[in-house]
Every structure is written in structure tokens, then in C-alpha cells.
Design a protein around this nucleic acid. Structure first.
Lengths: 220, 220, 220, 220
DNA sequence: TATGAATGAGCCTTCATTCAT
DNA sequence: AATGAATGAAGGCTCATTCAT
């Protein structure tokens, strides 16, 4: 979190940073992949952003594709680890859990620089099946597990109606991912400032109303 | 389509089919763009798929980008026209309207070859702002207009509760677009056959429950 | 002289001129070769200027090079024929002859559209040896013959001093050719309007003073 | 030239000579441009002649046109610098100055490989206005300045008659440039060996006779 | 005779990758 | 470990030439 900027050229003029470890390179790569897409990003740019020479990239990565793999892995896994860790501290109330999951996704990913990753992965999934599989298993599936816990708990408690759990899980993140992706694609087409938080708030309202059990006195 | 070629005599060597019109080229291009992405698609491939030589593409399009523009335009606009035409014949009942809109989207786009367009556009929107703007205005915005009508009508009739119309409209297609995009990205990561129709059915159920007005006797 | 413009599209709309003879094609080609150079001129342009289709060019010429050959031949030979014809009517006085030769060159070639031919030929001579040889023999050499006659006559009469005839002949046209070439090359670099006639007047003055016999009473 | 390469060990495979500097590439380019013209010269050929790969050209030049600009600039400017430096050491006698100017031009440019530059520039001036302007200002204009000094000095001293200075200056180099250009264009059309030095000697004789003041005792 | 759609070889340019230092 | 000059394969685009009509 603290070392996400390029090497701050001003600090060490003329001296390449000794500690230019792979993770820094992958970080620079990720930023550019998100910004411009995989193909449109040149290794020159990545090297420049990382403050190293182009050849140095090949000391740590076999190819541009390997760099892509590492960039995704390093960029997203810490976020997932953290999210899962938060699960333990999550509220017992299923609705509150879902709310927290969505909020966490949005504040830690969607609203940040990382919000471009879902778009990037969707765009490149077919071209890099291995990365896609890794992403699916380590990001999507793990993220969905959190939701499943909440939904199952809510159904068990009677708070939620009997649900098609699998599809309801699949559905849960979709609008949030969409909101993140939108900012990296069509957002510029709309003149007025969009309000993704309000969009998600509205979505969550609909989603929760849609899955709640119907009780006579349900005040909603 | 049927009345144009001279004697319809299959394919002759040396005689280029007169019907090798721009639309055929754009069609071939679209198929490949969807399959492999814009950059990864070579003009050679497009030409080969269309059964013409590379140079022929330039008789009809100024550049690869122009071909992209035309491919999107020709590929998606007829679909939108048709969808709007159907609106007139739509049920009066707002819920039924929404159901028909979703079904139409899925059967005419999501489940077809065109289902790759949303992913393609999302991936390339930043690289081709003009195409993105065209797509937003002529596809997204027009598609959303249909939903707005339904929502407003439902709210007016008291069938739907008072809604944040704009955000609810924005939300409506998202899961369907996601389902279409998924087939062109991560679908292969999941071994079991997915069931997008069931996914959308479940989604619509949640969405409608989420927007309905609450009446004591609402049987839902 | 009268048919040097393109076919005046307005006159026969929709009807290709039946009399689109090779010479018209060569004429259009020459105009464009002069304007843009051989390589930079596309056959499309020539065809368009001649008011025919591209394929028609190949009915009359085997290749672009053949068209070049014909363009030069047709463009310049009539001019030479005419100049030689004038020789018969030329003044007996050698100085007057030279003056007339220079004037004829300038008014019939240098100052006209044809003034670009020397530059064109010079630029392409090495690439098209056959055309160059034709041009040398039928234009340069014939043009020089006129000068040689004048010089020899002047020396014989004692009006000119004994001269290195060959080199003095070679020299004669050079400044006029240069003035013509200049208009098609560097002229745009000089802001002020140039005055080629004055330049040539001054040149001829120097040339004649330079070759005159020195007599005490030479009135000059 | 001599002090730069590490151990001057001829050529090693895989080890690109460090001295493959831009100037060498521009030099190779110039030679080929002179030989075949700008368009007809392929980058492959330039690279091959310089002993590098095609991609290497783009390490030093943005485009073929940039290479052209540099080739002209590097090829001709040193020559002009040198010529101007010689001016200081020039004879006081105006006739002698003109003789030296012409001799310098011929021995340093006309008779050398650089003699093709005037032809090249004339041929391409309209296609590359920037280069043309550079050439006009840095070569032609500077070269003419030397002549103007000599002519003005001669007129002032009474050695030359009152002259149309501007046009006489414009005229001065023309035959020399022509002689240089000729060798790169029509020379091959003439069987007998030409003698440009004699041509220029004869020209200078005429030019000087043409501008001298007439004095009774002028022995000429 | 005339057309113009179609061809395909060729060229400039880019960029991931290599390698001598 | 790090450099960055050099490579060369590949792709977009042009245009002289061909050919079925």
C-alpha cells in the first residue's frame, strides 16, 4: 500500500534503486496494464515507470506474459487475504455481512486504482487462460465464498427466504464489478458526474429486499 | 439478401462475388474481434475469413479502426432497432415488460454471437473513444430508455414502490451483460455447465421483489 | 496547346469521351509527373485527371514506366520541332540568334507548365535510362545544335572571339534550365517574388560580353 | 574518427560496433539517397550498408524523413563551414576570390560523392519543404554570400563594371551545380568522357570577361 | 473499348526479446 | 545484478497491375 508510486525519481537521482525487487516491477506493470491494457503497454514504459532498464525486466520475468501473471497475482491476492481476514470480525447479522462485503470491495478495490483489474481480466481472460484460471480460483471464487456464508446463514436463520444460493452468490458482486469497470470504460461518455456509491446503495437495497423472507410485520 | 447476386452460382475462381459488400467484411471483422480482441486480430485473418485479399479491405475501409467502427455499428444497431420496435407490442404490465426486455436481450444478443460485443466494447472503450461514444448513445442509452419506461409506469401505477429510477435503470441490464460477458471470458474456468438462463431468472426474481411495492396481501 | 486541360467534366457528364486517345492520357500523366514527381504520382490520379478508369491506362500503356516515356516524348518533342522550325526564320546576326533561342526556350518551356520537365528528367534520369537517353538525344542535343550554329557563325564572322565551342554550347542553356527548375524546387523558400526574366537578361548580357571579340571600337 | 573505439578490433560477431553512431547511419543513407533517390531507397538497404539491422535505424531516427533531414544536414553543413573559413584566407583580388570559390565548390563538393546532393535536393525540395528551407538557408544562401562579397568588392574597386549584383550572384554557382548534377543524371548518355573542369574553366572565363570593367588597355 | 473490383508483393514502422559489457 | 544497444519478425497500409464483365 505504501510503495505503489513509481520510484520517486527525485529522491535518488542518477542512482538506480538497489532494492528494485520483482514486486516493484510487477506493480509498475499492473498500473500500466490497468491504464492502457495489456497489448498497448510497452515494456519500455513499464521499465521507465519502475525506474529500471528494459533488460532488467528479463532478469525477473521470462516474458511479458509472465509479468502480467505476476502483476495480477501480486496486485490482487493481498486484497483478498485482507478481505477474508475481515470476515472473522464481521457482524453476525447476514445483512450486515453483505453490506460489509460490498463496502469492502468498493473501498479496497472498486474505488481504487485496482478497480481496473476486473476489466483487465475480462478483456484478457481468453488470451491468458492460466492467469484467468488463477484469478477465478483465487479472487472470484474466494470472494464468492464470503457471500455464500452470509446467504446460507441468513437462510438458515429465516431472515432470508429460501434461495437459489449459487446463482444469488454469482449475482452479488456483479453490480459492484460493473461499477468499477464502468469507470475504466464508458464513464467518459457520460457528462454528469456519476455516483457509484449511490448506485451501489440502491442496488443493495433492491438485492436485500429481493432476498428477504416475507414476514407479516417486516418493516423493511 | 436473396435478390442481388447475378446467377447465384456458388463461387467461381477469379470472379469475385459482387456481394462482397462492406457489410460482409464488417461481419467477418466483428466475429474475429469478438473472438480475439481488436489488437490480436490481424487484417490477414479478417480478409481470409471474408474470402478476399487484404487489399480489398482497404477498398471499403480506411483503416483497421474504421473497420472496427463499422463492425460495431452494423453488428449492434439492427438489434437495437428491432428491440425498440418490439416495445410497441409489449405487454402493458410493467413487470411483464421488464421480463420481455431481459428475454429479448438474452435471446437476441446475450446468447448469440453478438454476446461478445459488450466485452469487446468494454475492453476497447478507452482506446476508441468515438466508437465508445457511439455505442453508449446508440446502444446503451437506447436500451436503458426501454427500462425507464417500464419502471416509471410501474411506479406511477403503484405496482412498484417509489424508486431511484436512474440507478435502478442503470442496474437493470448489468447482470445480463455480465452473463454474456462471462461466456467470453471466465466461463471456461468453471467445469460444470453454467446455466445463464437460470441465473437471469433468479436475478429477475430478486430484482422484481426488490422493487415491488409492499402490500399486505402481496402474494409475490 | 489547346487540349491541355483535363476533359472538362462538365461538358459530357456521364459519358466518357470516345476520343480518349493515348496522347490525352500521356498529357494528364505529364502534368502530374511534373507536379508531384514520378513515384509520388499514382495511376489513380492520372486516370482521374484524364477522365478514364485506371484499367483504361493499361489498354494503351504497358506500365507506369511506359506512360512516363510517352509523356516525356509527347510533351517535349513538339516543342523542339517548333523551335527548330523557327531556326530557319532566325535572324542572321548570331547575337540575335542566341537571344531568340533563349527567349524561345523561356516562353515556350521555362515559363510554362513544361518548365518542370527538366527537373523531372534530371531527378529520374538514373532510374529510367532509356527515357533519359531519348531525352538527351531528342531534346538536349537538338537544342544545343541550334546554339552551336549560332556560335560557329559568330566566330566565323569574327563577331565572337575564338571559343571553346563545345563547352560554350553546353553552358548556354544552363542558367535558363536552372531558372525553370528553380520554380519547381526552391522558389518557395524565397519570400520576395523572383524575376526570372531579369535574371536571364542579366545572364545573357554577361554571356555575350564574355564571348564577344574584343575590338577597340566595340560599342557594346 | 580515430580515437573512440575500445580496442579497434575490427568487427566482432554479436558485438555491434559502438561507433555505429547516428552520423554513420546518416552517411549510409545519404550515399543511397544520392544514388537512387529518396523514395527508391529502402530502409533495408540503408541498414545493410551501415551494417546494422533495420530496427537500429529507429533507435536514432524517428522516421525515414528524419533520416533524410539528418543526412542532408550532416552531409553538407561541414562543407559550408569549411568554405566560409577559407574566405578569411582568400585572396584580396576579387577575380581570384571567385576562382577560389568555384574551385573550392568543385573540389569539395562537385567532384566528390557530395556532388549528388544538389540533384537530390532539387528532386525532393517540394516533397520536403522543411529540408529544402534548411538547405536554402544554410547552404545556398551562405554560399552566395561569399560570391556577393567578391562581386561587391570588385565593383567598388572598379575592377568589375557596375553589376546587377543579385542576379549575378544567383548566376555564379549555376554552371558548377549543373556540372555536378549532370554526373548524377545524364552523364551516362554521353559516350565520350566529359571534362567538367574544362567546362568550368571555360565558364569562369566567360563569366569574368562578362563582368569586367572595360578599360582601354584592358589586355584581356 | 472500357470498367473498377480485386489482388498481393512490398515497405515503413513497432516492439518483445537478446546479449555483450 | 544491471544496462541499453541491437535485433528481426510481424503487422498495417499502399499501389501498380490484372481480369471478368
Amino acid at each position: 500500500m505504501s510503495a505503489q508510486q513509481p520510484p520517486a525519481r527525485g529522491e535518488m537521482p542518477r542512482q538506480r534503486r538497489k532494492e528494485a525487487r520483482p514486486s516493484e516491477l510487477a506493480e509498475a506493470a499492473l498500473a500500466l496494464f490497468i491504464e492502457k491494457g495489456f497489448t498497448a503497454t510497452r515494456l519500455d514504459e513499464i521499465a521507465a515507470r519502475a525506474g529500471v532498464s528494459k533488460g532488467t525486466l528479463y532478469l525477473y520475468f521470462d516474458s511479458k506474459e509472465a509479468l502480467f501473471t505476476a502483476a495480477i497475482r501480486d496486485g490482487i491476492v493481498p486484497m483478498i487475504d485482507e478481505a477474508e481476514a475481515r470476515l472473522d470480525a464481521m457482524a453476525e447479522d447476514p445483512e450486515q455481512m453483505l453490506r460489509e462485503i460490498l463496502l469492502t470491495f468498493w473501498t479496497r478495490v472498486g474505488a481504487t486504482r485496482l478497480g481496473g483489474i476486473p476489466k483487465l481480466m475480462m478483456a484478457e481472460a481468453m488470451n491468458f487462460p492460466d492467469v484467468a484460471r488463477f484469478y477465478y480460483e483465487n479472487v472470484i471464487a474466494r470472494g464468492q465464498r464470503l457471500v455464500r456464508v452470509a446467504l446460507e446463514r441468513g437462510v438458515a436463520s429465516g431472515q432470508f427466504r429460501p434461495l437459489d444460493i449459487a446463482h444469488s452468490v454469482d449475482l452479488f458482486y456483479v453490480p459492484a464489478v460493473h461499477a468499477a469497470t464502468w469507470r475504466h470504460s464508458f464513464a467518459f461518455c457520460v457528462s454528469g458526474a456519476s455516483d457509484p456509491e449511490a448506485f451501489l446503495e440502491n442496488y443493495l437495497d433492491i438485492y436485500l429486499r429481493g432476498i428477504r423472507a416475507e414476514t407479516k410485520g417486516n418493516p423493511r
